[in-house]
């Protein structure tokens, strides 16, 4: 296992303006192609940690490197290019509910086009085919022209994954992707993420509440408590007792 890390955290701290500590001295590396699950209580800093990787949240000190490059100096176009290679999945799917599935999926591709082309919807035939293929991968190709709000929660999350695939991401960040889903659709969505990880070699980082799911899908589990990494083990070394420690109240 001597893969080069695709993401690395070095002494990362985040303190909110009101003094709340979001992240505290985070140090770890994520090798390329890993399926990493971050567990922890609500408010432990999981979402914050995830969003620092694509700079949706800024850090107070320390350094984050993506593909060996510090992401701190990025701004404007270079920041958008960083975000383009990092897909993101949300708890609430964050689709534009009144738009069609096709438009939602294609919106994942806009960063490959100049503004005027994306506004006029001038996507190439290749990319339109790519959108259908992305939907096929999440088994929803027949919903191409449906409006997003006609779909069930699980289907909406799959459309969100298809949108992310349009970015050709190297990394997928999934923030509680299954928190609003039932057990059956949970399995579908997690299986899709796992498949993208194994078939496409996309590095996947998922925030989860459920320890059982974490053990089922993860290559490695990181536990956060009050903004600190209190646990970090490959799946082979994970035991139930260890994980319970993560969920102890401070």
């Amino acid at each position: 296992m001597d893969k080069t890390p695709i993401i690395s955290f070095k002494n990362v701290n985040k303190v909110y303006a009101n003094g709340t500590v979001g992240l505290k001295n985070i140090n770890f590396e994520i090798p390329q192609g890993e399926f990493l699950v971050v567990v922890g209580l609500s408010g432990a800093g999981k979402s914050t940690l995830l969003r620092t990787i694509n700079r949706m949240h800024e850090i107070t000190s320390g350094e984050i490197r993506v593909e060996g490059e510090s992401i701190k100096p990025y701004k404007g176009r270079s920041l958008r290019l960083l975000r383009r290679k990092i897909g993101m999945i949300f708890q609430n799917f964050n689709l534009v509910k009144r738009s069609s599935v096709a438009k939602n999926v294609l919106s994942g591709r806009v960063s490959y086009y100049p503004t005027w082309k994306s506004i006029l919807g001038l996507f190439s035939t290749t990319d339109k085919q790519k959108a259908v293929q992305a939907l096929q991968r999440v088994s929803l190709a027949e919903k191409l022209y449906a409006r997003a709000d006609e779909l069930s929660g699980g289907q909406q999350q799959r459309v969100a994954i298809a949108r992310t695939l349009m970015q050709d991401p190297k990394i997928i960040l999934a923030d509680e992707p299954i928190a609003s889903l039932d057990p059956l659709t949970t399995k579908t969505v997690m299986d899709i993420l796992k498949r993208l990880n194994q078939e496409d070699g996309i590095t996947v980082i998922v925030n989860l509440h459920s320890v059982a799911l974490a053990r089922e899908y993860a290559d490695r589990i990181v536990g956060l408590r009050a903004g600190e990494v209190v646990y970090d083990e490959p799946i082979a070394a994970v035991t139930e007792a260890d994980l319970n420690r993560v969920y102890q109240t401070v």
Binding site: R80, L82, R83, F93, N94, S111, S118, R163
Partner: peptide
């Protein structure tokens, strides 16, 4: 604001 966050994460301006 959810869809805006999603589009921002995609790298849209």
């Amino acid at each position: 604001m959810g869809p805006l966050e999603a589009l921002e994460s995609v790298g849209a301006n």
